[in-house]
Design a protein around this nucleic acid. Structure first.
Length: 426
RNA sequence: GGAGAGGUGCCGGAGUCUGGUUGAUCGGGCUUCCCUGCUAAGGAAGUGACGGGGUAACCCGUCCGUGGGUUCAAAUCCCACCCUCUCCGCCA
């Protein structure tokens, strides 16, 4: 959520920044006006409350001195003021709640360097690595859902029987491949990131801290009976790990990584990418994450993007990096980059990683601060995260790119340690 | 799920029965200073967060698990909920 004081003091600049996202800025006017009213009420309420407290202390004193009648008179005054104070407090509370709800729905401001644009077609391609459109043989031009069926390593028909449409079920070497990819991503980032295995069912406030709620409730699975939500990404529990805490600056950046299953209802994308592994309600992902002091955030963003790329390089897949333009930026994102691998069989660039910097947007929602080594008080941390590796699409790209003329799939070198001696999936 | 105990500041731990200058006794920790002099002991002062007002010094308000209620006044009384610990039950 945005800093209300910034809206108060620099409304035009905030509006200009938000407008770059193609966002309606009238919400900001409403927030500005709401907050001004709320602040006036709180001030009045505080003054009344102070009066009531003062009078109450007098009552105590008078009773001790045995002046019952005088005490009763003061009590009457205080009671009248108290009633007025309660009325103001209620009004201020209502306005405060309204303001907070409004602020929770206003997206983050884009980074000044984020490219302008309306939608994903405006995302500039930053670089392309290892891609030769003519370098693929006919045996690699088979979509992974066909390869999967042929080799018996992807049994989506049964997944649908078990759980309904848009669920997947890798089997045999395909299942090993999925697990190996998670393992690889964790192993390659263990040098700098603490491994965490967080819960994948979380409270409403946990989902709200990252920005999924209240605006995107339809995208998440809810376990209503127990007021829990299935996490759409490990970003969600990791962001709340330090919620309502104050960390020392010397402990920053705090780097965490986690494997979790990810659950997405994909409301609005029904019927899209329904084949194979491209889009599913449940998939596996390894996420890398950091809490950082603001000054070190840009460097970390770069590093995390580099790490996402490095794993793809090690898997020897062609990929490209795109920067997300202002119109395509996610609600909480300040600046973002996607890594897309090329899948020769379905002839598509598949988004396999998204690395983002949130500035203090999530930290303000989640109340995560740090104590600067120099100076007094506390500051909000910055949060960053990125997919170290999202399994399904990398799985698809490997199955297609590593397919051999005889129809088997060679195991990538980097994954051999996880394949129990097998060098091929057949 | 059942029974019992408990949740207070950076930590430990009073205060709750008997509501009243209690942001909260005391101890520890931490910071600064003094003494001593060398990695010990002693003395003094300071030590939270958040919001608001003020050029500033500073002032006001909120916070004793959370949310309600009673009252002139709540850490203290009442209700609901959450969490922790112990025992029982169930269980991968």
């Amino acid at each position: 959520m945005l800093d209300i004081r910034r809206i108060r003091n620099d409304l035009d600049a905030v509006k200009a920044a938000l407008a770059r996202r193609g966002e309606d800025t009238s919400e900001l006017d409403r927030a500005f006006e709401l907050e001004a009213r709320q602040r006036r009420l709180v001030l009045e309420r505080d003054q009344l409350r102070n009066r009531v407290r003062t009078l109450s202390k007098q009552v105590g004193g008078l009773h001790r001195e045995g002046k019952g009648e005088e005490a009763a008179a003061v009590q009457d005054d205080s009671r009248r003021l108290g009633a007025e104070e309660a009325r103001l407090a209620e009004e201020a509370g209502t306005l405060g709640a309204e303001l907070r709800d409004l602020l929770l729905r206003i997206p983050n401001l884009p980074h000044p360097d984020a490219p302008d644009g309306e939608d994903d077609t405006d995302n500039p391609v930053i670089k392309v690595v290892g891609f030769d459109p003519d370098g693929y043989g006919a045996h690699q031009r088979v979509p992974h859902w066909e390869v999967g069926e042929e080799l018996g390593i992807l049994d989506n028909a049964r997944a649908v029987k078990i759980s309904g449409s848009m669920f997947t079920m890798p089997r045999k070497g395909g299942a090993t491949l999925a697990r190996a990819l998670c393992q690889l991503a964790l192993d390659r980032n263990a040098d700098a990131f603490e491994e965490v295995r967080p819960p994948s069912l979380v409270l409403t406030e946990t989902l709200a801290a990252t920005g999924q709620l209240p605006k995107f409730a339809d995208d998440a699975y809810a376990v209503e009976r127990d007021d829990l939500w299935c996490v759409p990404t490990a970003e969600v529990p990791l962001t709340s790990l330090a919620r309502d805490e104050v960390v020392d600056e010397v402990d920053l950046p705090m780097r965490l990584m986690a494997y979790t299953p990810c659950y997405r209802r994909e409301a609005g994308s029904a019927g899209r990418d329904t084949r194979g592994m491209l889009r599913a309600h449940e998939f596996d992902k390894v996420e890398i994450f950091a809490y950082a002091a603001p000054s070190s955030a840009p460097k970390l963003l770069e590093e995390m993007l580099g790490r996402a790329e490095a794993t793809i390089v090690e898997l020897d897949l062609a990929y490209r990096v795109v920067e997300i333009c202002t119109g395509d930026l996610g609600q909480s994102h300040h600046r973002s980059f996607d890594v897309e691998v090329y899948a020769p069989g379905c002839d598509q660039w598949l988004e396999v990683s998204s690395v983002s910097w949130f500035a203090d947007y999530q930290a303000r929602r989640a109340n995560i601060r740090y104590r600067p080594t120099a100076g007094k008080g506390t500051e909000l941390v910055h949060t960053l995260n990125g997919s170290a590796l999202a399994v399904p699409r990398v799985w698809a790209a490997i199955v297609e790119a590593y397919r051999q003329p005889d129809g088997s799939v060679r195991v990538p070198l980097a994954l051999l340690p996880y394949f129990r001696g097998a060098t091929e999936i057949r």
